[in-house]
Design a protein around this nucleic acid. Sequence first.
DNA 1: CATATGATTTGACCAAGGTCAACAGGAGGG
DNA 2: CCCTCCTGTTGACCTTGGTCAAATCATATG
Lengths: 236, 236
Amino acid sequence: MIQPARSHVACAACALRKFCFSSVGTDTAPATHVPLVQRRRLRPGEKLFTKGTPLNSLYAVRAGFLKTCALMPNGDQRILGFHIMGDVLGLDAIASGTHPTEAVALNGCEVCEIPTDRAERLMNGRASIATHFRQLLSEQIAEAGDRIVALGAMSARQRVAGFLLDLAERWASRGYSPNEFDLCLTRKEIGSYLGLTFETVSRTLSFFDAQEWIAIDGRHVRIRNHEALRNALLEA
Amino acid sequence: MIQPARSHVACAACALRKFCFSSVGTDTAPATHVPLVQRRRLRPGEKLFTKGTPLNSLYAVRAGFLKTCALMPNGDQRILGFHIMGDVLGLDAIASGTHPTEAVALNGCEVCEIPTDRAERLMNGRASIATHFRQLLSEQIAEAGDRIVALGAMSARQRVAGFLLDLAERWASRGYSPNEFDLCLTRKEIGSYLGLTFETVSRTLSFFDAQEWIAIDGRHVRIRNHEALRNALLEA
DNA sequence: CATATGATTTGACCAAGGTCAACAGGAGGG
DNA sequence: CCCTCCTGTTGACCTTGGTCAAATCATATG
């Protein structure tokens, strides 16, 4: 069991916190932060849901790192997104009632599971929760727009620079170091996410390392020059 | 004024029909299909909303053809989507309350305008409408995922073939010919949408024409061989 | 430990598509 | 009618990033 204190912290950053019984009570009573939603632990490589599965629950990431992938007709997969603490998974399944993508844990993960019928009930009962949820959905549409722009318009260096800065910012917004983190990903997975081959990803990372913009050791990255990366992201 | 009969038909295909007063009454009374939502006409090139504008209304396209674009820092624009009869615009603005993109009419358009406060009120009052709206939002997330896959993984020929087939299907689903339609777009706009230069779009269309898979005359397209295009979409 | 497997890096080469340029056809304006 | 501007087509050439291949390293498994 995770300590109440840590739980409280993680829940504060969670986009689905309003769907927990734990915070439905008065906000001033820490005792109510004992989680009442279902928790689920995932081993590295374990799938949270698979393509074609009926949508039963939405998930909020509490700890760890997951990817969501689209499976192509020819068998291989394209990575659509990476998800860390506070991110919500499963929203793309609401339209059809069936997951169009799959979610895979990249390391040990813990997620909160909110059954969809419970979420519906909560939203029907409290308009503010429904509004919040619509904002969550809309945010993913807007973010997808950004990805579309990036994939259609940016060079390999821009994509990799943008990827590193995006990860750094996301870790930072969760209270971690913006300068040092682990990509829990293979070069191949990064390439799949960015629309590049793994060789190009490797070369580009090596180039950034040679420029001393980053220091890379396997999957561990330290950003040495945010400014240079930001320039690489902007310039042609 | 548009004839009641046509109005009824267009509304039947509209994703926002549940938000019209006209259909909130009993479904069996055609008289109530007289539209009570605000209509708005747009001349070619006119903007429905611009980037940075506060979100006041959602829009459903009744007639015509619009594009939504992201504006890049350097000034040029990337086209995120094309929209025809029945499509909904503005959903990406719900999260921030401000339009992150702009929508431009490509020809004479007519849209229905649903003020967001009215939409909120309707959703708060009727759970089924709220559920329907969430499905609408989720659908756009799932569709954006498809675009991301397409942009990251497909060749120029695949993209153009997919674009033509997608347009054909969308026209067909609205009761028009799946074989003949007008791209109301310049080659440059198609390229911006597909992540290609306009020269490549032009060359690829010429190639498809030379293969006799399509017949192209300016912006008018006739599809002569759906099967060949579908193959082009799948093969490497 | 020996071996197999997969991740990563790097090099050499190639091709898809971008860039630059020339030209034609239309639309609009004086 | 002339001129300009914009769209579209096509050709020539070049760059980016993909493909193929080899070597290294790490990890896992017998």
